[in-house]
Simulated scan of single mutants.
Amino acid sequence: MKITFLGTGVAIPQKDRVQSGVLMEFGENKVLFDCGGGILNRIFESGVLHTEIDTIVLSHLHLDHVADVMCLLKANWLCDKLDSVIYGPVGTQEWLERLMDIYPYMKEKVNVEVREVAAGEVFELTDGCIVQCADGIHSVPSLGCRVQYDGKVVVYSGDTEPCDCIMELAQDADLLIHECSFPLDFPMTNHATPDMLRPYLEGSGISRVYLTHLYPHMQGHEEEALEYIKEKFEGEVHIASDLMEVEL
C-alpha cells in the first residue's frame, strides 16, 4: 500500500499546503480520499495520471474537502475517462445533483455513481480493500475510515475532534492520518489540537501517526506538537506535507 499526501492544508491559503486530499494505492487501484482545492494539480505533480483515479471517498462535504471533485471529473472527461464512483456521507447524492444542475453540460458527459455510507458500514472499496466507517465530531456529518488491505491498516480521521468512535477504528493500526488543525492549548471544538489528541494515542497500539489539515496557526508550532505527543505516545509521529509519500 502506498499513501501520498496530496493536500495537507485547509480553506485558508498558505505556502506549500493546498486543501485536503490523500491518495491511497492498493496494487494497481488508486483511491482518492477527499478532493479539496488544489488537489487536481497535486495529482499531476505527484506523477500519477488523473485518469487512473475513478474512485473518490469523501469524509464530508465542506468546500476544502470537495472543491476539486468537479474539476477532476471534467479533467477525466476531457481525456475520455467517463465513469467514476463517489463514496460519501448522507447528502452526497443531493450535493452532486445540485452541482450538476449548475453545470448541466456535465450531466451528459460523465457517469458518476454515488454510494452514500454511514457509521458502522463495512464495504469493499476495491478488490481486497475493506473499509469501515465511523462518525467524527464536526460541524457537519463527517466520517472517518479504517482501510484494510494486504494485512495493513490505515485510518483516516477526516475532520473531527479526537473521539472514541474514530480511535476505536484506529486501535493497533499501522498508520493513523489524523487532523491536527491548531497548536497546543488553542481553544477549539470540531477540530483537533495536540493536547486534545494525545490522550487518545496513549496505549492505542498505533505504529505511526501523521498529522494533517494544518491551519496557518500551526506554523512555527510543528515541532512543539511533535514533542508534546511523543512524551506519551510510543509510536512514530510526523507532520504530513504536500506530496509526502509513505509505503506500507
Results as ranks from 00 to 15, higher is better:
1 M>S: 00
1 M>Y: 00
6 L>D: 02
7 G>D: 03
7 G>M: 07
9 G>R: 01
10 V>C: 10
15 K>C: 09
19 Q>Y: 10
19 Q>L: 02
25 E>A: 03
25 E>W: 06
27 G>A: 02
29 N>I: 00
29 N>Q: 13
32 L>R: 00
34 D>Q: 03
36 G>M: 09
37 G>R: 08
41 N>K: 12
51 T>G: 09
52 E>L: 04
54 D>M: 02
55 T>M: 02
55 T>D: 06
57 V>Q: 02
62 H>E: 15
63 L>R: 12
64 D>E: 14
67 A>L: 12
72 L>Q: 06
75 A>Q: 14
78 L>P: 01
78 L>Y: 11
80 D>E: 14
80 D>R: 10
87 Y>F: 15
96 L>C: 04
101 D>Y: 09
108 E>T: 13
109 K>Q: 15
110 V>Q: 14
110 V>N: 14
113 E>W: 00
115 R>L: 14
116 E>I: 09
121 E>S: 11
127 D>L: 06
128 G>I: 13
135 D>N: 15
136 G>F: 10
138 H>I: 03
143 L>T: 05
143 L>F: 07
145 C>P: 00
146 R>W: 08
150 D>K: 13
150 D>T: 00
154 V>Y: 03
155 V>A: 11
157 S>T: 15
163 C>W: 07
164 D>M: 11
167 M>A: 06
169 L>W: 12
171 Q>K: 14
179 E>Y: 02
180 C>E: 08
183 P>N: 04
183 P>G: 00
185 D>W: 00
187 P>C: 07
191 H>A: 11
192 A>D: 10
193 T>I: 09
195 D>A: 08
196 M>E: 12
197 L>Y: 10
197 L>E: 13
198 R>P: 08
202 E>P: 03
203 G>A: 02
205 G>F: 05
205 G>C: 08
206 I>Q: 03
207 S>M: 09
211 L>V: 00
223 E>T: 11
224 E>N: 06
224 E>A: 04
224 E>L: 07
234 E>R: 13
236 E>H: 01
236 E>Y: 03
240 A>N: 05
247 E>C: 04
